Simulated scan of single mutants.
Amino acid sequence: MNQLLAMRAFIRVVESGSFRGAANQLLLPRSTVSKLVTDLEKHLGTRLMHRTTRHVAVTPEGEEYYRHAARLVAEIDEADGAVRGSKLTPRGHLRIESTATFAQNILIPHLPDFHAQYPHITIALGTSNRTANIVGEGVDCAIRAGDIGDLSLVARHLFDAGFVTCASPAYLERMGTPAAPQELAGRHCKVGFFSHADGKAKPMLFVKPGDRFTVSELQFSANEDNGQIAMMLAGLGIGQNLRPFVQPYLESGQLVEILGEWSHPPLPFHVVYPPGRHQSARLKAFIQWLIERFGKGGVPPATLSGR
């Protein structure tokens, strides 16, 4: 039995919650992963997990062994990386997740630079509005906006993006330009977002020193940025979106910024990934590139905040 490989298999089964997930991450047949864990149990003389056709549950002995094994394998990987890191160029495959709008407007335009620096790293970029299970789905890292709810992940701050209130020239010519957010509660149409989780509309928020105003009534809404921006471009109404996402349309004149003296609290963006034991040289290279490219000084401030 290859005990180190068996330990790796067991660790991946625990973290992914299934033999199939572990097999996908290790690029091994499911039957091989199952046999490795079975051989490890025979070697230890104890059952590490209970198996059914639909569920895997770790035994108390398995939980104890997992803690020790994960730490040991992490130390081995760290030792290997320390010796090999100075000699090897990062290479291999990365699975990354982000929203479609972030990928389209921010990440993808800069990927040629990453490829020029690391030509031996391939990338599979998943774009979705849902929150991916990073460990369970074999995702190396994800770029997320707002608060990071999963405290088991490492989160590295990239930047804060400011909001812009805007509308199409055709809409403003037809309905007029509001001088204050209070005017939006009248005859103006509002274009916003609804939560894909519960279907509830998210209010528009306007803040300036000593004043705060919210608009909850929306005539049109979408559950992701591209849809909401398309609605504004179609002249359906006034909306708020992140400056990096609407900047091209502001520059082209397809959208016009209004109510500039009112602000919406900026939205932080982070790259999140599993703790250190999962980091490879290629993942470290990508995370460092993200921070250098989009962190302080990486993206022009005007693109992010407009200030």
Rank of each mutant, 00 (worst) to 15 (best):
K284P: 00
I291V: 15
H270V: 08
G276Y: 07
L290I: 00
R282L: 00
F294R: 02
V271H: 04
H270D: 11
H264L: 09
V272A: 00
H278W: 14
K296I: 13
I258M: 00
V271F: 01
S280Q: 04
I287G: 10
E261D: 15
G297H: 07
E261P: 01
K296D: 12
V271Y: 01
Q288M: 09
P268C: 12
A281D: 14
S280H: 02
L283N: 01
Y273Q: 03
L290S: 04
V272G: 00
L259D: 04
R282Q: 14
R277C: 07
F286N: 04
L267R: 10
P265V: 06
L255N: 01
H264W: 13
L250A: 06
E261R: 12
A281I: 10
P265C: 08
Q254K: 15
R277V: 09
V271I: 14
L259S: 05
L259P: 00
I287Y: 00
K296G: 07
Y249V: 04
G295D: 02
L283R: 02
H278G: 08
P248D: 09
I287N: 00
S263G: 13
R293S: 14
G295E: 08
G260M: 12
L283F: 01
G260W: 01
W289G: 00
P275K: 06
G276S: 14
V256N: 00
Q254E: 15
P266E: 11
E257S: 14
G260C: 14
L283S: 03
W262G: 08
H270R: 02
F294S: 02
G260S: 14
Q254D: 15
F286R: 03
I287H: 08
Q279H: 06
G298Q: 10
E251K: 11
Q247K: 10
Q279T: 06
L267D: 09
G276T: 10
F294E: 06
P268D: 10
H270P: 01
W289Y: 09
P268N: 07
S263D: 11
A285R: 06
W262A: 05
I287E: 05
K284N: 11
